[in-house]
């Protein structure tokens, strides 16, 4: 007997949890009103309620079907590094301006694979940074600080 815990079951459970959570939150925070005079809570409650029901349907389906082979692995390394790179951009941009933050973002994200030696990573980051600055601030004329306080 294999575990009933498949990806489909997990998805269904997540959807049920999401639906119920939104429903409770909407009910607790926004006025439901009446059908004659609907409040801001009415539609979210209806939609999240239907979502939870659909989740139950998915759960039944998933349990009926049994387990399918897990084919896709969760790509932890790129997941963390790419999102991390974007986060670093968001944090550094207001302080340093566009150029340094794009440079950093490219360097960090390029660690998602091991195809490039550091020297080439730096080269790649420099090229991408130049493209960003030239395209956005010069060609498109967007007013953004390139290097904060200097340019």
């Amino acid at each position: 007997m294999r575990s009933i815990w498949s990806k489909d079951v997990a998805t269904a459970v997540l959807i049920i949890v999401l639906g119920v959570a939104v429903l409770l939150y909407a009910q607790g925070h926004y006025k439901f009103g009446s059908f004659r005079s609907p409040g801001p809570g009415l539609f979210p409650v209806l939609v999240s309620g239907v979502l939870a029901v659909v989740g139950v349907g998915l759960l039944i389906q998933a349990l009926m079907q049994g387990t399918a082979p897990e084919d896709v692995r969760f790509a932890w390394r790129p997941f963390i590094l790419i999102l991390g790179a974007i986060a670093v951009f968001a944090v550094t941009y207001p302080v340093t301006g566009v150029a340094p933050s794009v440079f950093l973002m490219v360097i960090i994200s390029s660690y998602s694979d091991n195809k490039l030696p550091l020297k080439n990573k730096v080269l790649l980051a420099s090229i991408v940074t130049v493209i960003a600055v030239v395209l956005f601030t010069m060609i498109l004329g967007v007013r953004l600080p390139v290097i904060a306080g200097v340019w």
Partner: peptide, 20 residues
């Protein structure tokens, strides 16, 4: 163009596009 050279640029376009 090999993808490992391309994706940092894609990322830059996405982030800069949204920022601008």
């Amino acid at each position: 163009i090999p993808f490992h050279l391309m994706y940092p640029a894609i990322l830059m376009f996405i982030v800069m596009g949204v920022l601008t």
